[in-house]
Write a protein that binds this DNA or RNA. Sequence first.
DNA 1: GTTTATGCAAATTCTTTGCAATACT
DNA 2: AGTATTGCAAAGAATTTGCATAAAC
Lengths: 137, 137
Amino acid sequence: MDEAKSIEILLEHGIRPTANRLLLVKVLSKAEHPLTMKELEDLVDTIDKSNIFRTLSLFRDQHLVHVLQDGADAVRYELCHSHEEDHDDDLHAHFYCERCRQTFCLNDIPVPQVDLPKGYRMNTINYLIKGICPNCQ
Amino acid sequence: MDEAKSIEILLEHGIRPTANRLLLVKVLSKAEHPLTMKELEDLVDTIDKSNIFRTLSLFRDQHLVHVLQDGADAVRYELCHSHEEDHDDDLHAHFYCERCRQTFCLNDIPVPQVDLPKGYRMNTINYLIKGICPNCQ
DNA sequence: GTTTATGCAAATTCTTTGCAATACT
DNA sequence: AGTATTGCAAAGAATTTGCATAAAC
């Protein structure tokens, strides 16, 4: 993702485009799987982890990233591709390999929806399939 | 769940039925929602947390409990109701309320299945809907 | 008697906050 | 000047391990 596009995305979500935030957007967009805070810390060692933490929280609150829990009980962050402000509508399934402990995006598999009982209101869905990936078979 | 039934379940999963393990099975079976380690520690203060931790790990490895991540990034444990040894087939959806931070079992909503791409093998699925529950509307 | 389970304490890891310094508008 | 952002350090919370004792077989 280039500079101009990154700035545009941040502004669209009401976030001021600082250098650090732009960098984090770029790193997130380059990753082909959702990243943990730890992974981000290792990938961008110029930004302090407290700042990464606060930036991710901000991104989450502004619906710029999805938050999902992987099979190893880690929290992962992934750029939203929709422009919805209040809920997520671009959700795809994820796969967690119990052998190599990697998390994969199943981009072609939208998260299946169900009918909720009366009174529940949905914002987002985590759909995580755990098992063994092709590389580990 | 009574004593005899608890012992039977443990033996079915190849777990030796000690007093502590029986107690944990009973507490898990009584809960109407999946429990965190913290909640279990508070509910059974006669067992040390390291033992609870090791027992839950054992239960997980023997497929006696499901492990799921809730919307607050906590890990929750829930008794399996199937007797499958190698995979889970009794999965239902869960709902996490972002206001009261409670996790609900949607027992009547089975987890929808999808077709996995070639090469992936599924063991279990986490299906977590996040939003606002009826009490918090 | 050997293996398994347990409790206690401590180590580790990860997340979160306080605060002073810096950068932005 | 005033607000927002950042880094550093440290606090907090939760998970995980080492080890000696106790229980089970």
